[in-house]
Amino acid sequence: MERHKEKFYELFNKKSQKTIFSPGRINIIGEHIDYNGGNVFPAAIAYGTYLYFAIRDDKIINLYSDNFAEDGVESFEIDAIIKNENGAWTNFPKGILATMAKHGHRLTHGFDAYVYGTIPNASGLSSSASLEMAFALLVFEIVGKTADPVEMSKIAMEAENNFIGVQCGIMDMFAIGLGKKDHAILINCNTLEYKYAPCTLGKYTFLIMNTNKKRKLADSKYNERRLECSAALKRIQTIFEVEQLCELELSDLPQVKKALNQETLYRRVRHVVSEQKRTQLVFEALAIGDLPCVGLNLNNSHLSLKDDYEVTGSELDLIVQAAQKQAGVLGARMTGAGFGGCAIALIEQAAADTIKEAVQQAYFSAFGYNPTFYESKIVSGTAVI
């Protein structure tokens, strides 16, 4: 941290006043159902975003990221927030600032900000949501209001949807803002009700496996899947009184298939409904320490994401399958939006090195480059540190 404080001083000729840490997240299970009114089960992780800042006397905002040092400092005035059409990282804080102002949290003073992130970009561990939540808290700190992580999450989702142009759900922001040390959080994305479950894994741990295949969420088929779900819901509402796909039961699927009369849409719905059930099973299993049940449902989740929702790809499929073959692995699946990024595996800690080596060899043989592995503690949400 000292290196970054020194760099802040070099850039802005002053000391930073406060530091915010905003974690990344893994989603243990409940994939692509947050925008379908479902339950998701994420946890905040120790990889995240560090935001150093100091308030200015004028209305100038200066933004710098150590991860994009080649971009230098971008400067603009509070009342002149313009989206960069080249997709620069500064669009994320700009989106937050504009949306916060719209909701009555308008800055009267500018600030200098220095960002350092430890989440690999485009990894599926929510680097963008981590950044957004950090800047949402920064605004609350500057205007002197008590931060509400639920409001911050809603604002960050609105900024992502309307300013960035990605039709994401609220899970990433919510998990990052309301994370709790050594706990996962079950979130009802329809009502925003939530409850924690101790993530006590004993001799096991979650291994994060990064395919190192880059993907840009806005350019992926993520928005296409949302449109497919919306189209399916409209047809289903002619026979079921539901507002969200996740209100359906597994027993409803035969009628749904007949009403849709379209195989692709049916498979999308089948994933959503079955993933909702798996998420509840994993929440209950983790609460009583039934880790084999957790692992089984991780495996089934990946199959559904691969065959029914079609968001995995060859890299994610191989890394998951290679992990599933190893002794000491209870289960594995992709995490995040898919199309590259990361997978997670529930593994025996003592076998971690052996598992990593075997998965790395299989992955390199197939693609000619190595994956990256991370082991992380489960941490608390976005806060001043």
Rank of each mutant, 00 (worst) to 15 (best):
L11P: 01
K59N: 08
F21Q: 01
M100T: 06
L281V: 11
T354S: 12
Y309P: 00
V272I: 14
Y194F: 14
I29G: 05
I288W: 13
L178K: 11
N300G: 01
E275Y: 09
G340F: 08
S65W: 04
S314C: 10
A350W: 12
I29T: 10
L138D: 01
G338F: 04
R56K: 09
Y266N: 04
R215I: 07
D79Y: 15
L201F: 15
I170E: 05
V256H: 01
E31A: 07
L305Y: 07
Y369D: 06
N121E: 13
G341I: 11
Y309Q: 00
M173K: 10
E77K: 15
E284N: 15
N370A: 07
Y116T: 01
E357M: 09
I187C: 06
Y9H: 10
E160V: 04
N261S: 10
H4N: 11
W89C: 02
D290Y: 14
T90S: 10
A147M: 11
V379Q: 02
S22I: 12
C342V: 08
F206H: 03
I187Q: 02
P23T: 12
P93R: 13
V166W: 07
M334I: 08
N190C: 09
K18I: 06
F140N: 01
E284V: 09
C189V: 02
S365T: 06
D317V: 04
V115Y: 07
V294I: 14
I164Q: 05
E70P: 00
R278C: 05
I176R: 04
I61W: 02
G340I: 10
K18N: 10
F240M: 02
A134C: 12
N27E: 06
V73N: 04
E357T: 13
R268L: 08
T354K: 13
A259T: 05
N84H: 13
F92E: 03
Y52C: 01
C199H: 03
F283S: 03
N62T: 09
